[in-house]
């Protein structure tokens, strides 16, 4: 009867307790690396949240680049300000949406589609005659040394959302 009363021996009890406590500590140690391992996933979600509705319906995007202006709230520490953004948006031959930054890669002027009558079908920078093809690649022999930055974009509920402008990788 005494064995029924004490089904757990001292040895067993210590084993269980140490395993339990040890496991707990191991789990505690695992949490931080785990958080780091899946962090990119979380961050991507956050970046998605940064996309802004630019009030342009997908159906209104044509093959002809059009200038889109919108504003975002930029928080710099405690200082919140409105920053106006611009993009040139069109559909390429495959029907994919392309959103190009208008900031010239030379010295940062604002380029325009067909901004010069002499160069139809190109983006033109009025400051130093920099030129870009329709896909945003710089025309060799003009001042810019890289293609125009490309905005992250997605379509949600038929509206165009734009995020950050990213430099081209090959540049």
């Amino acid at each position: 009867m005494s064995e029924d009363k004490r089904p757990v021996s001292r040895r067993q009890f210590l084993n269980y307790t140490l395993t339990g406590v040890g496991g707990f500590m191991a789990a505690g140690l695992m949490v931080s690396p785990l958080r780091m391992a899946i962090d990119p996933v979380l961050q991507k979600e956050a970046a998605d949240g940064d996309l802004t509705n630019v009030q342009l319906a997908e159906g209104d995007i044509t093959n002809e680049p059009q200038r889109i202006d919108w504003e975002i709230d930029q928080v710099d520490g405690w200082y919140e300000s409105k920053v106006s953004k611009t993009a040139w948006v069109y559909k390429d031959d495959n029907g994919d949406i392309v959103a190009l930054s208008p900031i010239c890669k030379h010295l940062g002027c604002v380029v325009s589609w067909e901004g010069s009558e002499d160069y139809p079908d190109q983006f033109y920078c009025p400051c130093h005659d920099g030129r870009y093809y329709k896909d945003g690649m710089n025309v060799p022999g003009t001042p810019p040394t890289a293609g125009l930055d490309i905005y992250e974009h997605k379509i949600k509920n038929g509206m165009l959302f734009l995020g950050k402008a990213q430099p081209r990788e090959e540049a």
Binding site: C104, L107, G108, C109, V110, H128
Partner: peptide
């Protein structure tokens, strides 16, 4: 005028 200057300067900041 200061808003105007800011906008203008943004368009042509390279020159």
């Amino acid at each position: 005028l200061s808003v105007f200057m800011r906008e203008l300067e943004k368009e042509f900041s390279g020159r």
